[in-house]
């Protein structure tokens, strides 16, 4: 996989003394959707802000398409579009004016045809002459996206793109992001919604307390860390587990009717057949069974909990 952003040993301490990033190593692959998943205060915005040039890096190196973000900032930044977390936008300008400003700022000659296509794609064309102050929150966010795309970037950062927007708009946003990826743009989005990472990402990085604990293909991550549970509904309720089964990862429900066995999908020997043999040995019959796999959410929660 060709890497388009390379982050090596990146650390950042704010002037307050807070260590916001702690030795980050990360490669973003060309053309992927990468989700940076982490709770509030994990360091997601800090990481993005350093790559984009808004926060000064501490130690370490970052390159964008082999251009060092400090030494060769022009080449690096020209490739990047950023949609910030906050709705920071000059509100008295019209949509079109602010688009042209963004494009010019990134060193591109005006291109009305391209600007029109971006605005149409984001359903903003009808609003092109409207002052931004008159637009709804969802539209403002789309204007921010349009601004970020105004200079035809190869990489797009979306910092919590769906925070505070409703479900329907969220779907629309996701579709737009996929269309962008299909057009060859590499996308890095941050989110603290697991659903979003699960839905959108090709790969997921989990960040917590300024450290990246996992970077994986989404599917691999889910398989690798996913625990499966086997729930057995018993013929006759049990008062307690027989002592002989004490060593097993078994849990008995409150009413004694359901026995839950947790196992690792990764392991070659899940221990299921052994368990079933043991159960019949003790005369414990069951009338139903079903298995379930934990979602990314469970994985995430357990990861974050393990850390702290």
């Amino acid at each position: 996989m060709e890497s388009i952003i390379t982050i090596r040993n990146l650390s950042k301490t704010y002037s307050t003394g807070l260590l916001a990033l702690n030795n980050i190593n990360l490669d973003i692959h060309k053309g992927e959707i990468f989700a940076l998943l982490g709770p509030n205060g994990a360091g997601k915005t800090t990481l993005i802000s350093i790559i984009c040039g808004i926060v000064t890096p501490g130690e370490g190196d970052v390159t964008v398409d082999k251009h060092d973000i400090v030494l060769n900032f022009r080449a690096a930044r020209s490739m990047i579009g950023l949609v910030p977390q906050e709705l920071s936008i000059a509100t008295f300008e019209s949509v079109l004016t602010t688009m042209n400003f963004s494009r010019g700022l990134f060193g591109k000659p005006s291109n009305p045809v391209y600007i029109e296509s971006v605005l149409r794609d984001l359903s903003l064309w009808d609003k092109r002459d409207e002052r931004i102050v008159n637009l709804s929150g969802g539209m403002k966010r789309r204007v921010l996206i349009a601004k970020a795309l105004a200079h035809e970037p190869k990489i797009l950062f979306l910092d919590e793109p769906t925070a505070g927007i409703d479900v329907e708009q969220r779907r629309g946003m996701w579709n737009m992001v996929r269309r962008l990826r299909d057009s060859g743009v590499t996308i890095i989005l941050t989110t603290h919604y697991i659903e979003e990472a699960e839905e959108m990402a090709d790969r997921i990085g989990v960040i917590n307390d300024g450290q990246i604990s996992v970077i994986e293909e989404k599917t691999v991550l889910m398989n690798k860390l996913g625990k499966k549970q086997l729930a057995l509904t018993l013929q006759h309720p049990l008062k307690s587990l027989p002592d002989e089964l004490a060593g097993y990862p078994l849990e008995l429900s409150q009413d004694g009717e359901v026995l839950v066995f947790t196992f690792d999908v990764q392991k070659e020997h899940t221990g299921i057949s052994e368990l079933l043999r043991k159960l019949s040995q003790f005369g414990i019959d069951f009338k139903d069974l079903h298995s379930s796999q934990s979602s990314l959410e469970d994985i995430f929660v357990s990861l974050v909990r393990d850390k702290s």
Binding site: C52, G53, A75, R77, I89, S102, G107
Partner: peptide, 15 residues
């Protein structure tokens, strides 16, 4: 722009 936060765009631009 500093006050309203829009300075982010200038800071992130190749200028």
């Amino acid at each position: 722009p500093k006050f309203s936060g829009t300075i982010y765009e200038v800071l992130s631009a190749p200028v």
